[in-house]
C-alpha cells in the first residue's frame, strides 16, 4: 500500500501539464512553473484528508436529496434564435466552429 501523504511531492510540471490538458487550459511554460508551485502548496493543505481514518459507515451520507420529479410533459424549449444570441460565431441556425474533421 502506498503512502498517500507522498502524493503531493510528486506534483511536478508534467503533472501540471497533464491537468492543464484535462482542464482544457492552454498555459504558457512560465505559467506552468508558477502553477506547479501553487498546486504543491494547495495539495499539502488537501493532504489533511488523507490523514483521517474515517468510519466507513458515514460513506453513504449525502445531504443532497432529489425532490419528487415533475411530470414528464413535453414543453417548448427556448427559441433557437434566442439561444444563438450569445454565440460569438453562428451561421443561420447553427453555432459556427472551426472545421473538426
Amino acid at each position: 500500500m502506498h503512502d498517500e501523504r507522498m502524493i503531493s511531492f510528486m506534483f511536478d510540471t508534467n503533472l501540471t501539464k497533464h491537468l492543464a490538458e484535462l482542464s482544457k487550459i492552454n498555459f504558457t511554460d512560465d505559467e506552468i512553473a508558477v502553477i506547479s508551485n501553487e498546486m504543491s502548496e494547495i495539495i499539502s493543505l488537501m493532504d489533511t484528508v488523507t490523514e483521517y481514518n474515517i468510519d466507513e459507515t458515514f460513506a453513504s451520507a449525502d445531504p443532497v436529496q432529489f425532490s419528487d420529479l415533475r411530470k414528464d410533459e413535453i414543453k417548448d424549449s427556448f427559441p433557437r434564435e434566442e439561444i444563438l444570441k450569445n454565440a460569438k460565431g453562428k451561421s443561420d441556425t447553427c453555432f459556427k466552429v472551426p472545421k473538426v474533421v
Binding site: I7, L19, S23, I25, T50, Y52, A59
Partner: peptide, 26 residues
C-alpha cells in the same frame, strides 16, 4: 479547475475526492 481535475483524476480519486465525501458524511 486544476485542483478539481486533480482530485477526480485516475490515481488520486480515492485518496482525495472519495475521502472528502466520507468526511462530509462524518
Amino acid at each position: 479547475i486544476m485542483l478539481g481535475n486533480y482530485a477526480l483524476s485516475s490515481g488520486y480519486y480515492d485518496a482525495y475526492y472519495n475521502k472528502a465525501v466520507k468526511i462530509r458524511g462524518k
